[in-house]
């Protein structure tokens, strides 16, 4: 009985999952192309509602761009060519994974730099503290204290 109930619920869960809704029904040539499309629109940012990817966005422009990507795929363009097409028009902003070059280097390497310099700082600090505290620890309690 419970299994049946769950089985009945599954179609509704699929129906109401937003990711599926946002994607327009497009006549893909085959499953492989559909998969390429899904990966690509998930990696590209919507240029209007900027914290969504192209796949999730309901904005007009996102719809247009999905259609454009689909049509370019039908025309046999590669993923790289399509991404270049969009970057040329909308800038690197559309990439959720910006290129590993130029002014993006700081973006990519920044966290690493922080860890390295932070680590050096902590190491220096710890070493200095150890060096400072050693004499103090070694110093015995003064024996001539008059208890």
């Amino acid at each position: 009985m419970r299994k049946l109930l769950i089985a009945c619920l599954i179609p509704f869960m699929v129906l109401f999952s937003t990711a599926l809704w946002a994607i327009d029904p497009l006549p893909f040539a085959d499953g492989e192309q559909e998969e390429r499309f899904r990966v690509l629109v998930a990696e590209l940012r919507c240029v209007q509602c900027q914290n969504q990817n192209l796949a999730d966005s309901d904005a007009l422009i996102a719809k247009d761009l999905r259609k454009e990507i689909f049509e370019q795929m039908q025309a046999g363009r590669s993923d790289d060519e399509i991404v270049d097409f969009l970057v040329e028009r909308y800038g690197e902003f559309v990439l959720y994974r910006p290129a590993f070059s130029g002014k993006n280097l700081l973006l990519w390497l920044g966290p690493l730099l922080i860890v390295v310099f932070g680590g050096i700082g902590v190491a220096v600090h710890l070493r200095r503290r150890a060096a400072n505290s050693q004499p103090a620890a070694a110093a015995p309690i003064a024996e001539d204290i008059d208890w």
Binding site: Q48, I61, D64, R89, Y90
Partner: peptide, 13 residues
């Protein structure tokens, strides 16, 4: 009419 030219101009709205 279909926003195709808009894409070439990098228009978002």
């Amino acid at each position: 009419p279909d926003g195709r030219l808009g894409i070439d101009f990098g228009i978002t709205g």
